[in-house]
């Protein structure tokens, strides 16, 4: 599903440039549930954004669903994101003036789905995350956990192949974190590839595979042994 070879990324900082990803090799198969761990500034978000086509890489090869990503124009990138990818962000990134159900329906709008169908599908996913009753509330009327569940519903609405989550529980307390992780596990069980950034060990351990990043290189990549605690 995701194949990355010798990927490099630098950010220009004034005259210098900051080398953030220094040759990443990573292969994620369809249906995997992968966590990326690493200290702050190690390049986790950068990697996820490149995978999510929100940013571009400088060197190396990136293949998404068999398609080589290179010199992609924004229109094509937008279409690919809409079709294959769902996003969950630490800061939720809901549109403030849209209700929960309207937020969930938005990616379907960009897919060209009719209004009635959008409404129906969005309601279905809100129900799935347990927020059917809150459908017509604005984001600022929802708790952090609820907002993130709306974001999960929105990520799922287009039935993407890959769900990318950048510290989805970073702004939540442990109880709501748990419910969001349960949702991600559910999604994964249904066959979606889930790629989640976290710096919390107990979150990472709920996934199948942990990739550790340090200073822009992968220092370890191992399957999680469900019976053993690290």
């Amino acid at each position: 599903m995701i194949k990355i070879e010798k990927l490099h990324k630098s950010y220009p900082i004034g005259k210098d440039s900051l080398h953030v990803l220094k040759g990443i090799d990573l292969h994620i198969k369809e249906g995997e549930f992968v966590a990326i761990m690493g200290s702050s500034g190690s390049g986790k978000s950068t990697l996820l954004n490149i995978v999510g086509l929100l940013d571009t890489h400088d060197e190396g090869i990136y293949k998404l669903n068999g398609q080589v990503i290179e010199n992609l124009d924004e229109t094509k990138a937008a279409t690919l994101r809409n079709k294959f990818l769902g996003f969950i962000f630490q800061s939720f990134n809901l549109i403030t003036y849209k209700t929960a159900v309207e937020n969930v329906a938005l990616p379907l709008y960009y897919q060209g789905m009719g209004r009635k169908d959008r409404q129906k599908v969005a309601m279905k996913y809100l129900e799935k995350v347990g927020l059917k009753e809150r459908a017509n509330h604005l984001p600022n009327e929802l708790s952090g956990g609820e907002k993130q569940r709306v974001a999960v519903a929105r990520a799922l609405a287009t039935q993407p192949k890959v769900v990318l989550a950048d510290e989805p529980t970073g702004a939540l307390d442990s109880k709501t974190s748990h419910s969001v992780m349960e949702l991600l596990k559910d999604i994964n069980r249904e066959g979606m590839t889930v790629f989640v950034i976290t710096h919390e060990e107990d979150i990472a351990e709920q996934t199948d595979r942990i990739v550790r990043l340090k200073d822009g290189v992968i220092i370890s990549d191992e399957k999680v042994n469900k019976t053993v605690t690290a």
Binding site: G52, E74, A78, N93, L94, I95, T96, L106, T158
Partner: peptide, 16 residues
Amino acid sequence: TKELGIRKALGATPKS
């Protein structure tokens, strides 16, 4: 800008 970024992430093309 942020709203436009969200829309883009969800699949809005530059044209739209």
